[in-house]
Structures are given as structure tokens and as C-alpha cells.
Amino acid sequence: MRHLLRRAAFYVVALWAAVTLNFLVPRLSPGNPAQAMLSRLHGKASPQAIHALEILFGVNTHDSLWTQYLQYLNNLLHGDLGVSITYLPAPVTQVIMRDLLWTLILVGVTLIISFVIGTLLGAVVAWRHGSMLDSILPPVFTFLSAIPYFWLALIFLYIFGFTLGWFPIYGGYDADSTTPGMNIDFLVSALQHAILPAITIVIGSIAGWILGMRNTMISTLSEDYVLMAEAKGLSERRIMLTYAARNAILPNITSFALSLGFVVSGALLTEIVFSYPGIGYALLQAVENHDYSLIEGIFLLIVIAVLAANFLADIAYVVLDPRVRHERGRA
């Protein structure tokens, strides 16, 4: 428990750091670019909305930095992230909520698929250490891991979407013939649109899990208890999965949590290539339209999602590793 509390406290600090970065970056950047954006906004948005944005970016104010900070935090606690310039007059929270589900499902599902397959493959490759499989797979996946996600996405889109026509090349569902909701047509269409981006993210991220698992597994295989299990004459599969892999997976869970931010970043770029209606695509539009409030809102949201996922990984770790449960709070 104490371990988890420490972790939770750390995530609160990390969240605070993200919020404070959001507050400071526009104020510290030379010639605050948000000012130009706000001046274009007069007459288009309501005075309240403009005032909220002024608080967000520190424009047209004579308050001290500290007062601004308190005002900013107050707005944030009330869930006010300002209005989005791109989708005027929709508030940023509304834009984000609209796109969040797409990203959450796409990235969540693909992450789990790639982690499970990658970890299993890594265990098998390590078990066959020195075999053909082991000499072929790691270099192949090394090459894959060095490929930029968005480029892989472009290639897939070109081959399977554009040239072969197997998959749709644009969007998250067929907007002409289906309406979003719980109906078969829409779900089938959404699935069709999701396959190619999902494959891209899996291939782009799987190498890390395979190589990480392989390396820890090789170390685990030389432990005495594995030798003991072999001496007892247990089946290969049992030794591999319940003796070696079970222990080797622990560090991999840690790196799962740590590389989450990286994978999410790659997934965002993949969404952009596929014009997938998630957070990544919204982020691109925000960048193109200098929609600073949307950029800040998306940053904050992704931070919260990643921190939450990290905390889940922490809980999983505690459940899987009794040492952490009994040892007193190791951060």
C-alpha cells in the first residue's frame, strides 16, 4: 500500500508539473504568440470566452504572475480549458471528449495486443537462444523499431489502401452511408477503418517488447530455479512460461509503463496519416490553426491518460511481484 501511495503522490507531482508547464510556456515564450491569436478573435467569440483565454495565456493582464497562476488553476479545476479557435465556439473540453474515445479504443487495444504478442514472442525467442529464430527475429525487429510510425503508416496506406483498395484510406468510419451509434453498419465500418492504423501501431511498437523480454528472459534462464526445474524434468513449456517468463516479465511491465508516452506519441502521428478522427488528428489541426488552447488541452489530457495508465501498471506490478508488496515503499 505504501508503495502505491508513493507512486500516486509522484503522479500528482507529475500532473502539477504538466499544468505548470502549460501555464508557463506561453508566458515565457518571446512575444507570446497567443496574443496575435486573441486579437484575431475579437468579434468572433463572446467576451467571456475571450477573457477565459486571456487568463489561459496571460494576455492583457496587469496581475502578478502569482495571481494569474491562481486564476489559471481555478479555471482548470472548474474544467475550463478555454474555447477552441478551430471549432469556435466549442469549448476545448467538448472537442477533446468528442475525439477521445476514438484514440482510447484504437491505442488501448493495439497497445495490449502488441504487449501480449511481443512479450510472448520475446520469451520464445529467448528460449530458443542461439537458434535460427533468435538470429533472424531480433535484427528484423530492430529494423522495424527504427522506422518512424508515420512513415510505416504512409506505406501501408499506399499499398493496402490506395493500390490494392483493401482498406479505406480516410477517416474513422464511412460518413456517407453510416451514422455513428450502436448499429451494425457503423461498427463494421469503424472496424474496417481501424484495422490498418491498428496494424501500424502494433508493428511499430512490438519490437520494443520483444527485445526487452528477450534480454531479461535470457538472464532469467540462467537462474538456479530454472536449472532446478529442468532437473526435476518438468515440461519445456511449463519451465518457459511459469518459471522463466513469469519472472522475466516484471521489468517488462516497468518498461511498458515508461514507454507508454512514446507509443502514444507514435499513435498520434499514425492517426494523422490516416486522418483518423482521434486526438492526434485534432492535435494536427490545432497546430495548423495556431489553436493554442486546444494544444494545451490535448497535452494535459494525454498527460492524465498516460499517468493513469502508469498507475495501472504500478498496481499490476504490485499484484504480480510479492517482493514489492512486502518491501517497504521503494519508489
Binding site: Y11, S29, G31, V264
Partner: peptide, 19 residues
Amino acid sequence: VFLVLPTLPLAILLAAFLP
């Protein structure tokens, strides 16, 4: 803290505000 913050969104946040 920097390890846990997602890199690309942070990079975009910084790059968007640098003039």
C-alpha cells in the same frame, strides 16, 4: 517527471509557442 510526460505532445506544446 520528464520520463513520464509523453514526449510528442510536450514537444508540440513547446514548438508551437516558440516563435
